[in-house]
């Protein structure tokens, strides 16, 4: 029996945190960032993208959502019996890239 420890806990922790944050925040974001501006026409709320705290929050939200979704894709491919050996590298690599881009975006002042 294979006793080698897997590094899955890292991705599972990011997946779990991302799933929780997305489930709580995504509906609020859709309401605040898309629906209210669309119907009221008041534009994006400045507090989200113009304060450091707001941008850091967006960074956490975007990066963890990416880790969550792409981890799910890795496992769904396994469930569908699509054994693509590069899938973890591509998916987790993409999540890392999105994280870096979101972090860079958070640091750029508006």
């Amino acid at each position: 029996m294979d006793e080698k420890r897997t590094c899955e806990p890292i991705f599972w922790a990011l997946f779990g945190a991302g799933g929780m944050l997305t489930a709580i925040c995504a509906p609020i974001f859709i309401l605040v960032l898309l629906l209210i501006p669309a119907f009221v026409g008041s534009g994006e709320p400045a507090f989200i993208n113009c304060s450091l705290l707001g941008r850091l929050f967006l960074f956490v939200f975007i990066s963890l959502s990416a880790w969550c979704g792409l981890h799910r894709i890795v496992h769904t491919l396994h469930d569908l019996r699509i054994h693509w050996s590069l899938a973890p590298l591509v998916c987790y690599g993409s999540a890392l890239l999105i994280t870096l881009l979101a972090f860079a975006g958070a640091l750029i002042r508006c």
């Binding site: 029996m1 294979d2 080698k4 897997t6 899955e8 806990p9 496992h75």
Partner: peptide, 14 residues
């Protein structure tokens, strides 16, 4: 936990 942590342990569950 050695078994549970392993490649075919608990992390096989989705």
């Amino acid at each position: 936990m050695e078994k549970i942590n392993s490649e075919n342990g608990v992390w096989g569950c989705t």
